[in-house]
Design a binder for these strands. Structure first.
Lengths: 246, 246
DNA sequence: ACCTGAACACCGTTCAAGT
DNA sequence: ACCTGAACACCGTTCAAGT
């Protein structure tokens, strides 16, 4: 095992007696599995769950796989492709069953599930706005959303554009909401905008002052369902032709 | 001027004759202005315009102001607060005039302007999803949107939630679209998802295959206007009570 | 083809020390 | 109060060299 023997990490585990550092045992790092896209994504998800998305870096991920960061570039062109693959894997947990409720109620439920899935990983949601995944699970989700919209009788162009907007909205809300939760720990100035809105001057911003109660009202899930419902209803009432620029 | 004399950057300008490096002249760095929030934001905008948002870092920004990165922390708690201040400054360029068109047409136009403003700065738009600005210009924009929605007769809670969703949607679209444009230079695999969608298997994803033409159809501005119009119409038809969870 | 260590070219933030 | 250099604790990506 020449490579492992040369490893600095392993060496420090073997040089015993100094500072009681936990030895890197065979239990922790069993029979060094071969690298693969799937194995890398799995390890990435473990890091995210254990320490949060911010701690997921190429270097840290590589270390958890007992290799160097450079090795990951055999499987992913860059960190954005890695993020896309992780997100697609996550989407595999979505339940795309038929169900018996009305099509719009099922669609809202699905989008809420999607948002909640991303909610715990706000940083990942933020990345997803830039790099949408193009894996099987994302395609399956998109296909299912289109099916529901068509089931509801939505015009084809509206349905296509609505699916796009709905997914983007869900992703953006997950990114925003999730980050807000993360910050809650700091406690000193959680929700700066909310505070500013609550204290805004009626003379300077009359409509804002009048609406401040409404702006801060509603449980997160209510507002989430409202957003999806509004987009669906609006899309239903808006054929693509309404915005055609000649 | 003891500090400037000690500056490594300036020294390298003074040691003449080596490699023809452009001297840091008084024209370029005139009479070293005092730091202030406004001066820092101004310098940041100059960097963004000249080199793109990705090049805007605390260290680089500080260097352009002839100081060290640590000095900026007197004015901004962290880089996110800096981003929020930059975005708010940018929003000052928005035209909030009354106009004579119908309220919804004016609102769509305003949101398109907002998106275009951010479009050139996709990375900044991406940050704005996490940290919304809470400066005067953002408040003014929010106030104006609320005024238009109320002018259209929208129910107060719907109007408040719609303003929030519209701004988030515009920001997310700007982030997504802008990044796509940035990538166009690479030319090898522009729009991975689009390619995948165009070539999707009808057996596996029947609705997606059927909608692939519609999904890729439409000019960016058509789709943008459609998205805003759909949200506005949907919000009009969706009172907050429709999603109240008892 | 796959994997590696080392290097390259950077980051944001903190802090003791100065003015 | 404001400003600084230096340090701390990191990053993503490339590349020559190995197997």
């Amino acid at each position: 095992l020449p490579r492992r023997a040369r490893s600095g990490r392993l060496d420090s585990g073997l040089v015993a007696g100094r500072g009681r550092r936990e030895p890197i045992s065979r239990r922790e790092r069993p029979a060094k599995k071969a690298l693969s896209r799937a194995a890398i994504v799995k390890a990435a998800l473990e890091i995210i769950d254990a320490e949060g998305v911010d701690r997921l870096t190429m270097r840290r991920l590589a270390a958890s796989l007992d290799t160097g960061a450079a090795s990951l570039y055999v499987y992913f062109a860059d960190i954005e492709h890695l993020h896309a693959a992780i997100l697609d894997q996550l989407l595999g947990g979505l339940d795309l069953k038929r169900g018996k409720a009305e099509w719009d109620e099922r669609l809202v439920g699905l989008l809420v599930s999607y948002t909640e899935l991303l909610h715990a990983k706000p940083a990942l949601a933020g990345k997803a706005i830039f790099t949408r995944p193009s894996g099987d699970n994302y395609l399956g989700l998109l296909d299912f959303i289109l099916a529901l919209l068509r089931e509801g009788g939505m015009e084809p162009v509206s349905a296509a554009w609505a699916a796009d907007v709905l997914l983007l909205t869900a992703t953006a809300i997950a990114a925003e909401q999730g980050r807000r939760d993360e910050r809650a720990g700091s406690a000193r100035e959680e929700e700066e905008l909310a505070e500013v809105i609550a204290a805004v001057s009626p003379a300077e911003y009359p409509h804002l002052a009048a609406a401040s109660g409404a702006l801060l009202s509603g449980a997160p899930e209510e507002r989430l369902r409202w957003a999806f419902l509004a987009v669906i209803r609006g899309a239903m009432a808006t054929p693509g032709a309404d915005v055609r620029i000649p």
